[in-house]
Design a binder for these strands. Structure first.
Length: 201
DNA sequence: GGAATGATTCTCT
DNA sequence: GAGAATCATTCCG
């Protein structure tokens, strides 16, 4: 079984590089019964803190909600949007540097039946299970109680799993942040070309 | 197949 | 009191 990624994987200076490197890694969140539920990360978005108008921490904004972004790399940042959905992020960068990476798409690997159960009738096809940040949060049973969890702990972690050739990795503008002006156009979204669990494209 | 729209509640001003 | 790092449904062609 693969080892958990070490703290230094997340604490590198270049958050955009970490976002790209997360593609092909395995996100594991054991179920309440202790069974492994996991999926390959196929889509990510980098949020670069103070200088990024799309980030919650733009301009150094520091609130109860985004406090975890300022903490140590390798922790989980979960927030709630649109009155219905949770978003799962990985904190990166040094302490005091509010960078994070949003996980936007997963390819289910283990515990697929549990994911189907959590998603219910809305997931008509398996690709509906985890092809988007709100959907994968439901399938992986992610909610606010996971905010601040350590990725080197036992509730949630990320393992090496699959090597993705550089030519299969594509980048483009991020999604759902039109209010961010020019920063919305920055190519800080990464995905595995052709994978059906990518949220769009 | 694609575009428009309503859902629903937390968070910050 | 407004707006949000989204999704599912509905309508149209």
């Amino acid at each position: 079984m693969a080892r958990k990624l070490p703290r230094k994987f997340y604490s590198r200076n270049d958050t955009v590089e970490v976002a790209r490197d997360l593609l092909g890694k395995l996100l594991v969140i054991p179920s309440a019964e202790g069974r492994r539920v996991s999926g390959v990360i196929v889509e990510t978005e980098a949020y670069l803190g103070v200088e990024d108008r799309g980030a919650h921490s733009y301009g150094g904004r520091r609130t109860a909600r985004n406090e975890i972004m300022y903490g140590r790399a390798g922790h989980v940042y979960v927030f709630f949007v649109y009155g219905m959905y949770y978003q799962f992020n990985v904190v990166t960068g040094a302490v005091g540097t509010p960078h994070a990476i949003l996980i936007r798409g997963l390819e289910p690997v283990e515990g697929v039946d549990a994911m189907r159960q959590r998603r219910g009738a809305k997931a008509r096809k398996d690709r509906d299970l985890t092809s988007g940040p709100g959907k994968l949060a439901i399938a992986m049973d992610i909610d606010r109680s996971m905010n601040g969890a350590d990725l080197l702990g036992k509730d949630v972690w990320i393992e090496n799993y699959r090597e993705i050739p550089a030519e299969s990795i594509t980048s483009g503008p991020r999604i759902g942040i039109d209010y961010a002006g020019d920063d919305a156009l920055k190519p800080w979204r990464f995905w595995i070309e052709g994978n059906i669990y990518v949220s769009r494209g």
